[in-house]
Design a protein around this nucleic acid. Sequence first.
RNA 1: GCGGGCGUAGUCCAGCCCGGUUCAAGACGCCUCCCUGUCACGGAGGAGAUCGUGGGUUCAAAUCCCAUCGCCCGCG
Length: 387
Amino acid sequence: MSINFKISKKSIKSNARLGLIETSHGVIETPCLVPVATQAAVKTLTSEEVEKTKSQILISNTFHLHLKPGEKIVGKAGGIHGFMNWKKPLMTDSGGFQVFSLGFGHDLNLGKMINPKTRMGSDADLQAEIKIGSQPKKLKIRQDGVFFRSPIDGRELFIGPKESIKIQEQLGADIIFAFDECTAPLADYEYTRNSLEKTHAWAKICLESKKSKQALYGIVQGGRYKDLRIESAKFIGSLPFDGFGIGGEFGDDKKTMSKMLHWVIKELPEKKPRHLLGIGKLDDLENIIKAGVDTFDCTIPTHYARRGIAFTSEGKLNLKQSKFLKKQEPLDKGCICDVCLNYKKDYICHLLKAGEITALRLITFHNLYYFNSVVENIRQKIRRGEI
RNA sequence: GCGGGCGUAGUCCAGCCCGGUUCAAGACGCCUCCCUGUCACGGAGGAGAUCGUGGGUUCAAAUCCCAUCGCCCGCG
């Protein structure tokens, strides 16, 4: 079966809504965080442990699994579900983000958000705008798809909409995404428009080439340009997708993000689920949900955990700081996750300083549980009509 | 007792032989910040030594000389 989306409540104070996404691997309560399992693993945790963090669905990556171990291996193992022993729903990202991250993102050393503090490039890079006709150094973006260079052995490989769908069909996630070009934040208007046209053409090809019963989400792009965002949302929204991803950049502050999401979400069909790709700092969650986002994936809880950062009701804590060696208290006083019930900051700080990977496991577990709890609370607030 | 080696930031150590744009480099550690469709052990920045001690040579010494203390290795 594909998926079935039911909206159980719509807020009158915002665009927030409560819903259920039914899949053949179970039901997801939305709004919902989608932890990232790029290579068919939430880094540091087993699938059983991830389940204990109240995670409902994971997102894996087409590009990475295609390279290693290859979709045939995963397919023979019963798809990603069987391969990683994850019994709940799954998504796969299409590889579209890698068009950006391995392309201009790599060249200009930038992330999806422009953050001048961390831009390490030369002044020329800082000024650079990506103009129409320009190509990333390591890959070729063509009308029919993208020539990548394998980060593993350097060989060239081609992924376009057909290829991405075919791979995703073998990977077997419940929800798959159309192949897109995630536009770089420094792309100028003309580049973004041109890129958008490719993403739109690819969206149609993805719909046409899909043979499975997996749910397929189209992806809205358009960069920071209002007319392009609206145009993209109207176009992608008019196609018979099962849901919609919203990709690309969203400014670097909450107001901009909300504003940009409103442009898009207003144009998308009310009755289909919306997934915000790659967004989800703790501070973003309530905003994006109020804007009408149903699901969103983000590496923040897991990635930051591996840098020793724990998210708590007191904010984010850098557990590597020596002061935590003196704290005999859980990461978060109010948290009832296995880690907070059993371990204290002093021990986790020690493990980090000693380079023990157990520290990363404990923080990853807590962060996921904490994020999922925060989202659960937001669902409660919507249910009670508070937001 | 004799001969040899060593003594530079919290740690390991570069520089000394050809004394002056290195009055001090690097690594680890420490501190702060950064990381939004993934990158465990990453990026940026910062604090920290006046070079064992005393004296001498010189315009100028961590770098040369003398003495002294401490440690190490051989020989007695």
